[in-house]
Amino acid sequence: MTDTPAETDTPTNAATGTDTSTSRTNASARVTEEGTPKRAVVLLSGGMDSATAAYEARERGYEIYALHTSYGQRTEARELECARRLAEELTVADFCSIETSHLSAIGASSLTDDEMAVADADTESDEIPSSYVPFRNANLLSMAVAYAEANDCGAVFIGAHSEDFSGYPDCRPEFFDAFEQVVDVGTKPETEISIEAPFVEWSKTDIADRGLDLGVPYEHTWSCYRENEPACGTCDACAFRLQAFQRLDVRDPIEYGERPSYTDES
């Protein structure tokens, strides 16, 4: 993964006051040396992480090609609705929605298998959760790289972060570094596509803090693993999301069936 410094304020975690900055591309550099707009594919799931990644890509000066994938997850209809709305808000250059069934057919995940229950949140667990979709990010990134190469895009953005890779092996920094090597050897000689995971060392709270600074419309995002509306509030995805907003003392703008407290002060 490659990052270059940006001329932006250094973001901090509002809950801890710690520096959460990563190197960023100069946001004023909105064209390549050849004078054409910089282009990037953003994996836009409709969730808060991917939405923040999209707004980060725009802040870095990229023209956005949004890729949304539906693979049989329980909340795929709501996620697609949110992704389309975010694409409108961002005025993307193109929105590509792909429906695949192979991840659902393969199964072994509570997100795609109706026979498996979505577990309640356990924010302290180090175990790989049942919501892990085997090798999903490799599948999604492969589609994103194909889309990027077809549209002369120089980067693919994904919103993975540190609390993801504590449970999901395909969210680790080493995975993205290795995948970028695959891209280098598996595309045309003249193709140069970087894999950008700008939040890979950040927490969910850091991402929410950055997104609030960027003006991400979190009311148009969806994270819940169980329900299309309202969000359950008790699955892992809801828990980490609610915890992030609670640590920032900001009310999450989407509706929940329950809003448990997930902060240390509870």
Rank of each mutant, 00 (worst) to 15 (best):
E63R: 01
C224D: 01
M143K: 13
D120Q: 01
T12G: 07
R74N: 09
R241L: 08
A77Q: 05
G61C: 13
Y65D: 09
D94S: 14
P260E: 04
N228K: 05
T12F: 09
N26F: 14
I158S: 01
T20L: 11
D114F: 08
S101M: 12
E258M: 05
T25M: 14
N151C: 07
L90T: 02
G61S: 13
S194D: 09
I193N: 08
I254N: 04
K38P: 07
I254S: 04
T75D: 06
A121Q: 00
P134W: 14
A138M: 06
P198E: 09
V216E: 04
Y225C: 05
T69M: 15
A208K: 10
E56S: 15
G17K: 09
F199H: 06
R210H: 15
D122A: 01
Q243T: 08
V216S: 08
A105V: 13
E149V: 06
T8Q: 14
G211T: 07
S28R: 10
D249A: 04
I98T: 14
K188C: 10
T10D: 12
T100H: 11
A144F: 04
T18P: 11
T69L: 15
I207K: 13
E258Y: 08
A244M: 12
A146C: 05
S104P: 10
A87M: 01
L140S: 00
E59Y: 14
Y62H: 12
L67H: 10
C82G: 01
E229H: 05
V145A: 02
S50V: 06
Y225V: 01
E229P: 00
D184F: 10
Y262P: 04
A144W: 07
V92N: 03
D264R: 06
S21N: 09
S261H: 06
G17F: 12
P230W: 05
A93K: 07
A148Y: 09
I193G: 09
S131M: 02
T16N: 14
V31A: 14
G154E: 05
P129Y: 11
D9W: 14
E59N: 15
A144D: 01
Y71A: 02
D252A: 11
E56C: 15
T52K: 02
E7Y: 11
L111W: 06
T12D: 06
A144Y: 04
F157R: 02
S97A: 15
T16R: 15
A155H: 07
A155V: 07
S101K: 10
L140E: 03
T112K: 12
L141D: 02
S97N: 11
F179W: 04
I158L: 03
N139L: 09
V250S: 07
N137H: 04
D184H: 11
P230C: 02
F199I: 05
V41K: 03
C235D: 01
E180N: 06
H161L: 05
P253W: 04
A93E: 13
A197I: 01
M48H: 11
A66P: 10
I195E: 03
D126G: 03
D164V: 07
F176P: 00
S45W: 09
A119Y: 00
V31I: 15
F245P: 03
D164R: 02
E7N: 08
